[in-house]
Design a binder for these strands. Structure first.
Lengths: 124, 124
DNA sequence: ACTTCTATATGTAAATTACATATAGAGGTG
DNA sequence: CACCTCTATATGTAATTTACATATAGAAGT
């Protein structure tokens, strides 16, 4: 069964203010800047800030397939260069729109977090 | 089986930078301000900012029991007043220490979130 | 007797995470 | 050429977490 079942039909992972799955906007952000391979994303994700040294390959490839199923990204096999064939992922307009939805969610979370941190500060 | 198995032995829910379970610091924060009943927490949690209109009673009572198992809070039955007997929860020194650990985690998450939001802003 | 409100607590399906493992091409080395 | 390592994509699955439903029960009003 699809582990993304029960999500809304737009494929937007930011529905209902869920605060996890930062991997989705992180991937969209990196692909917005320029197209990349999955393996590249695995190395680049930690630069976004939500990940430590490495990101889980399983999570990345499953998320990429989910994003592709929902027309957020497109891919094509790239047989040039050395090493095994790789898929080059490119963000679509829907993907960009989706990241902008995420942006609103992230800002609202940012506000809540700032507020909570201020509250704790006042305790001391 | 305890659903908090595999957590570290200090009972600190902020280990490894986990970004969910805001309910734990939220409860500790409210109890730091003053002792409350579980039912009161259910109503007060939305004022902290991470919850919408209501918080899940199941999550609250299970978290309270977890906090009590880890000496973060203490409770005593309160039979005064009207209505059924209720448990009055009070934060302990360990609970306060734990919230301060959470505080550091939350600030590091705040930094990552601020950074990511700025990055998305630069795309536009 | 019946209903509603307060209060605490448990059950469980579905979603998610974390980690392990599988598959496979390319390149280097003895 | 057998072997190892690195790159690259992908699947399997146990444990964890969430979300929602339901259970239990005293008190208070009607």
């Amino acid at each position: 069964m699809n582990s993304f079942a029960n999500r809304d039909t737009t494929g937007c992972g930011c529905y209902r203010g869920r605060r996890t799955r930062w991997i989705e906007p992180s991937i969209l952000y990196l692909l917005w800047k320029h197209s990349r391979h999955g393996y590249e994303l695995m190395n680049d994700l930690p630069t976004v800030g939500f990940f430590d040294e490495s990101a889980d390959p399983g999570a990345i490839y499953r998320m990429l397939r989910h994003l592709e199923d929902n027309q957020m990204v497109e891919s094509q096999w790239d047989t040039s260069g050395s090493g095994p064939a790789k898929r080059l992922y490119t963000i679509t307009q829907m993907g960009r729109d989706n990241l902008m939805l995420w942006f609103e969610t992230l800002k609202s979370h940012q506000a809540a977090l700032n507020d909570f941190i201020n509250k704790i500060n006042e305790l001391k």
